[in-house]
Amino acid sequence: MVEKRGVGTVLTHVALILGIGLLCFPLYLTFVGSTHTSRDVLSVPMPLLPGDQMVRNYTVALTSGVGVGVAKMLANSMVMALGIAVGKIAISMLSAYAIVYFRFPFRMAAFWAIFMTLMLPVEVRIVPTFEVVASLNMLNSYTGLILPLIASATATFLFRQFFLTVPDELVEAARVDGAGPMRFFKDILLPLSRTNMAALFVILFIYGWNQYLWPLLITTRGDMNTIVMGLGQMIPSADDYGDWPVTMAAATLAIVPPVAVVIFMQRLFIKGLVESEK
């Protein structure tokens, strides 16, 4: 650690506080905006202190919103984000396990095929994917929201790298102890991957929560909207004034779950990213 004294300390703190202020001000503004009436928000200058309309605005947002209630959209988003995070972890762990621990024909080909999809973001393959999902009658369903986003080269790769660091002797000790492949996975590998899984869960949950384009494409019914796309629709366009305070309230609500996930899993998350002992 570099130790600084006097002016140095003051300067670094000023810089830090400025930086935090810069990052947090828009969030604060969103919150303030969600506690006033529509008229107050649109007046110039905009109020910088919380108003007294908080309860009303949030109630409206949660129950009726602009089209669909935010509560419903939050639930949809939650299902999608959880589904994507859990599904991705499960699938990529299993495929990494297969690639690292089993010798089968075209093993490396399989690995490279997975690795190559790293280069193809969702947007590139979105038209064929939509076609497939539509043909399978999965439009407007949770399955349709989750399934196409579940395969993950990144997570597979991360688990592969982690599995490679697990000493071979551990596998051998387990074999001598009589543990078959499934037992070894369940009793040894899974507990050892706990922190990695936690770190990935945080990243993938936020990834899933923030999906915009895909839900926009495959949901046509309002009650399947996710909160992120719902927010997009709540922003007034053309000559519509809209209800800004309600929109702001919805936006504030939309960031609560990801923040909660990060806060609650922070300890494991950091451990999973920095841990190298083993």
């Binding site: 002797e169 051998e172 001598v176 102890d177 009589g178 543990a179 009793d187 083993k278």
Partner: peptide, 20 residues
């Protein structure tokens, strides 16, 4: 036979204890 069927026990150089 698989190791578990051979009625053996092994001690490894780096101990190979299950860390968790």
């Amino acid at each position: 036979l698989e190791p578990r069927e051979r009625d053996i026990a092994m001690v490894f150089q780096n101990y190979a204890l299950y860390p968790h």
